[in-house]
Amino acid sequence: MKKSLTAIAALAVTGLAAAQSSVTMFGVVDAGVSYQSATSRDAATGASSKQTRTTLSNSGYNSSRIGFRGTEDLGGGLAASFWLEAPITNDDGATGISTFNRRSTVSLSGGFGELRLGRDYTPTFWNDTVFDPFGTNGSGTNVISSVNGSTGLNNTNYVRASNSIGYFLPPNLGGFYGQLQYSLHENTDSSTAADTASTNSNAGRYIGGRFGWANGPLDVAVSAGQNIAVDTLALTRKVQTINLGASYDFGPVKLFGELSNVQNKFDTALGNAHDSYNGYLIGATVPVGAGLIRASYSTVRYNEGAAGITGEDPRVQKLALGYVHNLSKRTALYATVARVNNRNDAAYTGSLSSAITTGYSSNGVSYTGLPRSSTGYDFGIRHAF
């Protein structure tokens, strides 16, 4: 009897293993030396200050990560799959598989498309990263992405949204693709709570979509989304995004472009107000033997009536240039240099981390001016498995 039970258990395990058509462990380990500097000037006194920092960083080319994904063929054209992906900080080893907050989803797919549940990338983020030659990584990250993800907007659902329900079109539509996503806020609605966005039952909710067409060398997509941001000052704050991106591969050179508009809308006790951020990006990649040259120019114009930024034309501009040398399909060396310029008090908050503060202290003297210019360099190695 005992042997029979053992045999039945073994057959059951064998059957499960056969049904699970694929399980894959994957990851990226990326490390490099980064140098960052920022110069500011006090508007009142004219005094200037410079800060610099050199670090051994990670994710300068691709984000360091480790993950597991699998697919089971259910028959009849149906498949179930999962994806669990965790960030890692290989430069200090402090962050390992403690969370799967890069992505944690379970899916059911078939001829109808794919239904995906869990934490996933938002549709409005995809255009910012797909049509950026630097893939929103390292010092070359475009300023559209940096401003949209800044602490000032507090748009926690900019890159990813938790508790989301997503639908993806099937891949056999002649190049057309698309997705819709709704993120549940999971808050308790209380009729006695103060009416602020931090207690609003909709705070943290995201809804968005992205639709595009990719055929041959051309890829073009438009996306739109809205996030209810948590804010203790405003009664309700909505961050609304719409962007349009495209790329065209000519062979010797691949061109990229994006237009973006973000509206930061406030509903306060004193009335309604909104800030707007209009940006665009142009870029290119050029294959050179085993390497790839990358270049981009991006800019965002600020209209922050609520935030009080002044100037005739407040904007931030960024020029980035990089080179990737592929030692193999999985291993690459990379180098990037980027330069940021702020005009008329545009408050840039981005990946050149020494430029994100609005005040400086040097030799016991405090400066309140915003950063006027910033420079970043990355030199590193990326290995994927």
Rank of each mutant, 00 (worst) to 15 (best):
I8M: 11
N142Y: 02
S361G: 12
P133K: 06
N342Y: 03
G96S: 08
F134I: 10
F379D: 01
V23L: 09
R210G: 10
S37E: 07
V13I: 03
A47C: 07
V106E: 03
P217I: 03
Q263T: 14
G283V: 04
Q51F: 01
T55S: 12
G135D: 10
G118W: 07
P170Y: 09
R210S: 11
R119H: 08
N278S: 11
G350I: 11
G289W: 02
S354Q: 04
T129E: 13
N326C: 04
N142K: 06
G75P: 00
I66V: 15
L233T: 15
D128S: 05
E258R: 14
G208H: 13
A161K: 04
T232S: 14
A355E: 10
K318H: 06
A10Q: 09
I228R: 14
A335W: 03
K254P: 02
N227L: 15
V147H: 05
R65N: 06
S260L: 10
W126T: 05
V29A: 14
A193H: 07
Y297G: 12
I228T: 12
V29L: 12
G174Q: 06
N200D: 15
D73R: 00
A384G: 03
R41T: 13
L115E: 00
S22G: 07
G174D: 08
A161D: 05
K254Q: 03
G96T: 09
S107T: 12
E85H: 05
E72K: 13
G283D: 11
L173T: 01
S164L: 03
L327T: 10
N272Q: 08
G279M: 04
S162P: 06
T124I: 05
T232R: 06
F100L: 12
A94W: 01
S81G: 13
G283P: 11
A234N: 14
H274G: 08
E85I: 05
P314R: 06
A246G: 15
A80D: 01
Y297P: 14
T136Q: 11
N142F: 06
V230D: 15
K50R: 10
T45D: 09
N90P: 07
D42G: 04
N163C: 02
G271K: 11
E258I: 12
N278A: 09
P252M: 15
K318M: 13
N342T: 14
K318L: 13
V324D: 10
T99Y: 00
G311S: 01
S162W: 03
F26E: 04
D378G: 04
S49N: 14
A284V: 10
A347Y: 12
A320K: 01
D249T: 09
T192D: 09
N303M: 04
L5M: 06
G208V: 12
P133N: 02
G113D: 04
F131Y: 13
G376T: 08
N363K: 09
F266L: 11
G149M: 09
Y182N: 02
R119P: 02
D275A: 13
K318I: 05
G15W: 00
G245Y: 07
Q317C: 09
N326T: 10
Y277A: 12
Y206H: 07
V337L: 05
S4W: 08
A79N: 00
D275N: 15
S59A: 15
F131N: 04
S361Y: 04
T24V: 13
Y182E: 03
Y277L: 14
T6N: 12
I165M: 11
A307S: 11
T299K: 15
T71D: 08
D73N: 06
G305F: 08
V28P: 01
T95P: 01
